[in-house]
């Protein structure tokens, strides 16, 4: 048996432990009305808003966050069983305006955050797409997802396990747990569709599926 808990997850758990006390104190009074339950039952700990663009302090349970994402951040919902998104970046040479996008996906009644963003990985411009599960890590591991991007006769496919939104967007990005393509390759993919090489047009398609029955 391979251990289900891997290094990436251990890393994020340690991270969470360090976060924990400050975090709960901060929100317990205002939003989440369960002041004594936090340590004994971390599953009931409220989630942070997964919208990472601006610092958003909203926390709550999944239902509340879904409403918040739709109403306050105007995030759209797609069918997670099969999706295809187009990302257009008009000025890909200037990555410092960190470009990123969030879309919500629905699969088996569960919700997933699909991130797409441009960033520098040790000075190399990259694009990255990955998924996070709106729920706890334990349940997240019962799902799998795939992301595919291509053009010009090439295709890159990533298949992974969504991370829980307990892990911050940044934690997941920095652990490189997703589909990463260099800007050079992304631009090569984009030249397929009669676009000038100054504009980036990436089509990311994928799906989410349940790997095994939930055992909670």
């Amino acid at each position: 048996m391979e251990p289900r808990i891997n290094d990436l997850q251990v890393e994020s758990r340690v991270h969470e432990l360090l976060d924990f006390p400050v975090h709960t104190n901060q929100i317990s009074s205002a939003i989440y009305e369960c002041p004594n339950d936090h340590i004994e039952n971390p599953k009931k700990k409220p989630y942070n808003c997964p919208h990472s663009g601006a610092k958003c302090d909203v926390t709550g349970d999944i239902q509340r966050l879904l409403l918040h994402l739709r109403n306050d951040h105007n995030v759209e919902m797609s069918d997670g069983r099969s999706f295809s998104h187009r990302y257009v970046h008009h000025d890909p040479k200037h990555l410092h305006h960190a470009t990123w996008m969030l879309t919500l996906l629905d699969c088996c009644g569960r919700k997933f955050c699909l991130y797409f963003e441009a960033f520098h990985l040790r000075k190399t411009p990259m694009y990255m797409a990955f998924m996070q599960f709106m729920g706890d890590e334990e349940e997240a591991m019962s799902f799998s997802y795939s992301l595919q991007v291509g053009g010009n006769g090439r295709k890159l496919t990533w298949q992974g396990v969504p991370r829980s939104i307990r892990d911050s967007h940044k934690t997941v990005r920095d652990s490189q747990d997703g589909l990463i393509i260099t800007r050079k390759l992304a631009l090569f993919f984009s030249t397929d569709n009669n676009t000038t090489d100054k504009e980036l047009k990436l089509k990311v398609s994928g799906r989410v599926w349940r790997e095994q029955p939930v055992s909670i």
């Binding site: 391979e2 891997n6 591991m141 799998s144 291509g150 006769g153 090439r154 295709k155 890159l156 496919t157 990533w158 298949q159 992974g160 396990v161 747990d177």
Partner: peptide, 9 residues
């Protein structure tokens, strides 16, 4: 460990 990367070219 549940992840894989596939390149077709």
């Amino acid at each position: 460990y549940g992840r894989k990367l596939i390149w077709e070219g």
